[in-house]
Design a protein around this nucleic acid. Structure first.
Lengths: 247, 247
DNA sequence: CAGTGGTCTAGACCACGTC
DNA sequence: ACGTGGTCTAGACCACTGC
């Protein structure tokens, strides 16, 4: 049983995310909300304070609270799966495997996946799209012990994360994400339908099981303007979220 | 004239920093503090809530509040200030103001900085370098109430953050960072000594005071290969850190 | 000027911890 | 059992906004 002020905060947050309170619009006054929910003004204040701490609304004395962003934010848990995030945004995610290969682990693979030298790993090159438009090139290296399960997944599988959970009960936790910008190479450009040299947001990440065992590491390159990542520094909120770009 | 709950928060914060309430010790109860300061319990709760948001104290229902530590928020301190981070890495940071201008706030400024429409804001264009090589173009908008203090800072001041703290006691507390990749425009290219169209890592950020009042927002563009950002998902560790690139 | 948010009070009940 | 923090109420006054 959640506290009343939390229920109210949830309802208001939903209202903001659903567009009932668009960015730039004004929230109802505290008194009005108090009457609507049948609570005292103090309880409403607890609720809106939470939204303020999350950065969703701003306030100035004497003026009604203003909605800052309708930023549909996903938790860090959902960050791991492109498909799950996209569906939550109301977009249609698709995926397509370009090539796969089994090779002996490179020095980098050994380091990142904490494998014995010489282990065979599985490389997969994937392109992922939103509503049919290519958005992301993924170059993933899977550890040997999960490689076979990955190879049994059909090439157009929408959510590999979901499939690995369904098939072998694997639950991903998260290691580390390193973000920088790179220019699209010839291959990237062809796959994403952009010009060579176009800016890409690159995220190099390691995914682990909950107990810290590395499962995969990946070099993901996002087409500029399609997706942005946001990090917030307020206490108690999720540190990193994915965002849709203006495209 | 600061609010009573802020005065109380300040006194308690000082007490923690001075060792009067060492890490691990318990804070006096809300009722005791209320009696000591001659205020209602609600006012004390406002004060301790601020300390909780800063990560100084923790609380569990039924038990007294526990002092966590004096100043463990190093990660964000470093993230916020380019100069402080660079020095910690053993690099030599420099900064140079290209241009400044006072203009009426745009709609975007009004929204991000929570200002009344028509307020005059201060735009500053800066280039920052590591060991003499340009690395970062910063386009910052300062709220009107801090603009004057910023204008009094010399153009090649190494750390604006430090100066604002020294001059007017301004402490930055919370922020949000949105990361994506963009192509360098003509201006960016000239300032960073790269070709037009080169990939840049863009970080748009809002910085606020401890109580959530926005101070500045900025569009920072990092030259590719110089700096990367990393996010880790272990609890209790720093969510976002800056990294040197291979350059 | 009326309305709004910021602040503060003085109570109350409950769930949880410590003893 | 008792103290504590978490929640909630029903008032109040003030500073500021918006008209």
């Amino acid at each position: 049983m959640a506290a009343r002020h939390e229920q109210i905060a949830d309802e208001l947050r939903d209202g903001i995310n659903r567009g009932q309170f668009p960015a730039g619009s004004r929230l109802p006054s505290e008194s009005e909300l108090a009457a609507r929910y049948g609570v005292a003004r103090g309880t409403v204040r607890q609720a809106v304070a939470a939204l303020g701490a999350e950065g969703l609304i701003g306030s100035r004395q004497g003026a009604r609270r203003v909605v800052i962003g309708s930023g549909a934010r996903q938790s860090f848990e959902e960050l791991r799966s492109f498909a799950q995030w996209a569906r939550a945004e109301g977009r249609r995610p698709t995926g397509h495997v370009i090539s796969t290969a089994r090779r002996p682990a490179t020095a980098e693979d050994v380091l990142r996946l904490q494998l014995p030298p010489g282990t065979e790993v599985l490389y997969v090159l994937r392109v992922r799209s939103l509503d049919g438009a290519p958005v992301l090139v993924e170059r993933t290296v899977y550890a040997d012990w999960i490689a076979e399960a990955v190879e049994h997944i059909e090439p157009d599988c929408e959510s590999v994360t979901q499939r690995l959970y369904d098939d072998v009960g694997l639950v991903f936790a998260y290691g580390e994400h390193v973000l920088d910008a790179v220019a699209a190479g010839t291959r990237d450009a062809g796959l994403l339908d952009i010009r060579r040299g176009s800016p890409l947001l690159r995220i190099q990440r390691v995914t682990t099981t909950r107990d810290g065992r590395p499962v995969e590491w990946s070099d993901d390159r996002y087409r500029s303007g399609t997706v942005a990542f946001s990090v917030r520094n307020a206490s108690g909120t999720n540190p990193l979220t994915r965002r849709l770009g203006p495209g």
